[in-house]
């Protein structure tokens, strides 16, 4: 049975994600009473993605979408309960899911291309393209996921 190590692995993942969300919440001057929920939603979101990718075997993009749907729903709920804009929770909780590593590799690959002879450029170009596409797809999944609950829950006649 490797279930116990896997649970520990996910819990560790949740811990670091909570820390990441908390740090950025402080950078963004989030009110003290909202800090706990930012960290919790960040932990739940990233741990859920890790479970879906490493445990279930889902691709990272749909897994991010599912994680962000959960974050978005949780953010709406906390926004309703605490009478705060949902953005406070959405932005901080989705921070751990930001495709920083993909964006980093895409940018560095792009810069490395500049010094290469034209004949040997195909493979590095593929590398850049792959990382760019992954960055875009993950950003799209994050945004679609955290905004979808609002579009589905609130559809009143606009005020303005």
């Amino acid at each position: 049975m490797n279930n116990v190590p896997f649970v520990l692995f996910v819990l560790e993942d949740a811990f670091w994600s909570a820390l990441a969300a908390l740090g950025f919440a402080m950078l963004f001057n989030v009110p003290v009473r909202a800090l706990f929920w930012c960290a919790l939603l960040g932990a739940v979101g990233h741990a859920l993605r890790t479970t879906l990718v490493a445990g279930v075997g889902l691709h990272v993009v749909p897994a991010t979408l599912v994680a962000c749907l959960v974050i978005g729903t949780g953010a709406r709920w906390r926004a309703y309960v605490m009478k705060m804009p949902a953005k406070v929770f959405q932005v901080t909780a989705s921070i751990p899911l930001i495709p920083g590593a993909f964006a980093f590799r895409a940018m560095l690959g792009l810069f490395a291309l500049a010094g290469m002879p034209i004949g040997s450029i195909t493979e590095p170009l593929q590398y850049v393209a792959y990382n760019l596409v992954m960055t875009g797809a993950l950003l799209g999944a994050i945004v679609a996921g955290i905004i979808a609950p609002k579009l589905l829950i609130t559809h009143e006649k606009p005020v303005v």
């Binding site: 670091w16 994600s17 740090g23 751990p96």
Partner: peptide, 9 residues
């Protein structure tokens, strides 16, 4: 906080 967040990343 930010240093710890990046280290967590």
């Amino acid at each position: 906080g930010v240093a710890l967040a990046c280290a967590a990343f």
